[in-house]
Amino acid sequence: MRYGQRDVVHGLDLTIERGEIFALLGPNGAGKTTTIEILEGLRLRSAGRVSVLGTDPAGADDAWRSRIGIVVQSWRDHPKWRVGELVRHLARYYPDPIDPQELLDLVGLADQAHQEVQKLSGGQRRRLDVALGILGRPELLFLDEPTTGFDPEARLAFHELAQRLNRDHGMTILLTTHDLAEAEKLATRTGILLGGRLVACGTTEELAKAVSTTTEVRWTGPDGTAHRVHVPDPSKFVYDLHRTADGPIPDLEVRRPSLEETYLRLIHLEDPL
């Protein structure tokens, strides 16, 4: 994608498999929103090839659009509609919608069916956003910063909902978020965008290995001294440690880098992978 003489997305080669929860990460200005909007068919690309559910989004018809669901970061339409009325009304525009009552039960809004949208809490409003995004039984769901502003309880409930949609309904989910713990918890694989390029892609373990060939091992020695080392083969190191101690090792911990640590290392590399 080019704006004037500036390429904001370039050399991006990405395949997302059916049934995945895929997280797309990157700092502000990395090209995440542009990439997602191209995939959703909301923005025309400058060059390259794109296929989403077997179709080029740039020329997609309504039948294709009914197969995707979009939950944007902020949406404040229909404030005076009652929740149940809004869901029932929009369901009329899909060929095979989820039953409105079943949908409200699924997202945990059955008790708010008669409440005006503008009176919902932030977490409830986000659940309604998801309900409207999945109303047409999409095969692919785009979630853009889904838990921004959530308290911990609301975030946990939303994570459980996303996992249930993926597990029980076979829904593929493409997630963008700045919450790296959220991405690590939900995503099957993660892609990291930097400067409009995909600099790394894989599972948390694969990404960790891309930036570090060692694993941290911590334990407490017989004299109470805390030890911490980085080793290339933690399994062999722990095995030798047990043999040397001839018994349990106090406070033993084998710790690979978290997704957050890996992400921060990757985006600060002068020559990313």
Results as ranks from 00 to 15, higher is better:
Arg167Ser: 03
Val83Glu: 06
Lys236Ala: 15
Phe150Asp: 00
Phe142Pro: 00
Glu205Leu: 07
Asp233Glu: 15
Leu12Lys: 06
Ala187Pro: 01
Arg228His: 12
Pro234Tyr: 01
Asp62Ala: 15
Leu252Phe: 08
Thr214Ser: 14
Pro257Ala: 11
His230Ala: 13
Trp75Thr: 11
His268Ser: 15
Tyr93Lys: 02
Val217Lys: 09
Ser46Asn: 04
Gly191Ala: 11
Arg228Glu: 15
Leu266Trp: 02
Arg228Gly: 12
Gly136Phe: 10
Asp240Ser: 12
Gly191Met: 06
Asp13Ser: 14
Glu116Ser: 08
Tyr93Phe: 15
Gly29Asn: 09
Gln112Ala: 15
Arg127Tyr: 05
Gly224Ile: 10
Glu40His: 07
Thr190Ala: 13
Ile68Pro: 01
Arg82Tyr: 01
Pro57Cys: 08
Arg164Asn: 04
Pro57Ile: 07
Thr177Gln: 09
Arg265Glu: 15
Glu261Tyr: 02
Thr172Ala: 07
Gly133Pro: 04
Pro79Asp: 04
Arg2Lys: 14
Lys236Cys: 06
Arg125Phe: 01
Leu194Ile: 05
Asp99Ser: 04
Val52Arg: 08
Leu143Val: 10
Arg2His: 10
Arg6Ser: 11
Ala187Thr: 08
Val130Gln: 02
Tyr93Cys: 07
Ile70Asn: 05
Val107Gln: 04
Trp81Thr: 01
Arg265Met: 13
Ala162Phe: 04
Ile192Val: 15
Leu39Pro: 13
Lys32Asp: 06
Leu25Asn: 09
Arg2Val: 12
